[in-house]
Deep mutational scan, measured.
Amino acid sequence: DDVELRDGDWRVELKDADEEILRAVEEAIKNGASEQELRELAERLIR
């Protein structure tokens, strides 16, 4: 699993992620995405 989400800690570690993925995830976090939404976003972007 390349995506690590810690309970109560919104730092997201994406291994080997490019800047576009990181920006998309950071934007989702700023917009108040839930953990499930972040997982789905990350899975779509990593593929």
Score class of each variant (00 low, 15 high):
Asn31Ser: 12
Glu26Gly: 10
Leu22Val: 13
Arg6Trp: 13
Arg44Pro: 00
Gln36Met: 11
Ile21Val: 12
Val12Tyr: 05
Glu20Phe: 11
Lys30Thr: 06
Leu45Asp: 03
Asp7Lys: 08
Glu40Lys: 10
Leu5Pro: 14
Leu14Gln: 02
Glu19Ser: 06
Asp7Gly: 07
Val12Pro: 10
Ile46Phe: 02
Asp1Trp: 06
Ile46Arg: 06
Asp9Arg: 01
Val25Tyr: 07
Asp18Pro: 15
Asp16Thr: 09
Ala24Pro: 01
Ala24His: 07
Val25His: 01
Arg44Gly: 11
Arg11Leu: 15
Lys30Trp: 05
Glu27Asp: 08
Ala42Gln: 04
Leu45Val: 07
Glu27Val: 11
Ile21Tyr: 03
Arg39Trp: 05
Leu38His: 00
Trp10Asp: 04
Val25Asp: 00
Glu37Phe: 06
Leu22Met: 11
Asp18Glu: 08
Asp2Glu: 15
Gly8Val: 07
Leu5Cys: 12
Leu14Asp: 03
Asp1His: 13
Glu26Leu: 10
Ala28Gln: 02
Ala33Met: 14
Asp18Ser: 09
Gly8Glu: 14
Glu40Asp: 10
Glu27Asn: 10
Trp10Lys: 05
Glu37His: 05
Glu35Trp: 06
Asp2Trp: 09
Ala24Asp: 02
Glu19Met: 06
Ile29Pro: 00
Val3Gly: 12
Val12Ala: 13
Gln36Ser: 11
Arg39Met: 07
Ile29Ala: 13
Glu40Pro: 00
Asp9Met: 00
Leu14Ile: 10
Arg11Gln: 11
Glu40Val: 07
Asp16Lys: 08
Leu14Thr: 03
Arg47Glu: 13
Ser34Ile: 02
Glu35His: 09
Val25Ala: 01
Ala42Gly: 04
Ile29Trp: 15
Leu14Met: 09
Gly32Ser: 02
Ala42Trp: 12
Glu4Asn: 12
Asp2Asn: 15
Ala24Val: 14
Leu22Glu: 02
Glu40Ser: 08
Gln36Thr: 11
Glu4Arg: 09
Asp1Ile: 12
Ala42Thr: 13
Glu43Cys: 06
Gly8Pro: 15
Ala42Arg: 04
Asp7Pro: 04
Ala42Ile: 15
Asp18Tyr: 06
Asp2Thr: 14
Leu22Ser: 05
Asp16Ser: 07
Asn31Val: 04
Asp16Cys: 15
Leu41Trp: 01
Glu13Ser: 15
Glu40Met: 06
Asp2Met: 11
Glu37Tyr: 04
Asn31Gly: 11
Asp9Leu: 00
Leu22Arg: 13
Ala28Gly: 03
Leu14Pro: 01
Arg6Phe: 14
Lys30Arg: 12
Glu27Pro: 00
Ile46Ser: 06
Val25Lys: 00
Asp7Phe: 02
Val3Asn: 15
Asp18Met: 04
Lys15Asn: 10
Ala28Thr: 01
Arg11Trp: 15
Glu13Ile: 15
Lys15Gln: 07
Glu37Gly: 02
Glu4Val: 08
Glu35Met: 10
Arg39Pro: 00
Ser34Trp: 01
Arg6Ala: 15
Leu5Ser: 14
Leu41Asp: 00
Glu27Leu: 06
Ala33Tyr: 14
Ala33Phe: 12
Ser34Cys: 03
Asn31Phe: 02
Glu26Pro: 00
Gly32Lys: 03
Glu4Trp: 01
Ile46Tyr: 01
Asp9Gly: 04
Asn31Arg: 13
Ala33Ser: 05
Glu43Thr: 07
Arg39Leu: 08
Ala24Phe: 08
Glu27Trp: 00
Val12Gly: 12
Asp16Tyr: 12
Leu38Trp: 15
Glu43Leu: 04
Ile21Ser: 05
Arg11Lys: 08
Trp10Gln: 04
Arg47Tyr: 00
Leu14Gly: 02
Asp2Ile: 14
Arg44Gln: 12
Trp10Pro: 05
Lys15His: 09
Leu45Trp: 00
Glu37Cys: 01
Glu35Asn: 08
Gln36Arg: 12
Lys15Asp: 08
Ala17His: 07
Arg11Ser: 09
Glu4Ile: 14
Ala33Val: 10
Asp16Arg: 04
Arg11Ala: 11
Asp1Phe: 12
Leu5Arg: 11
Gly8Ala: 09
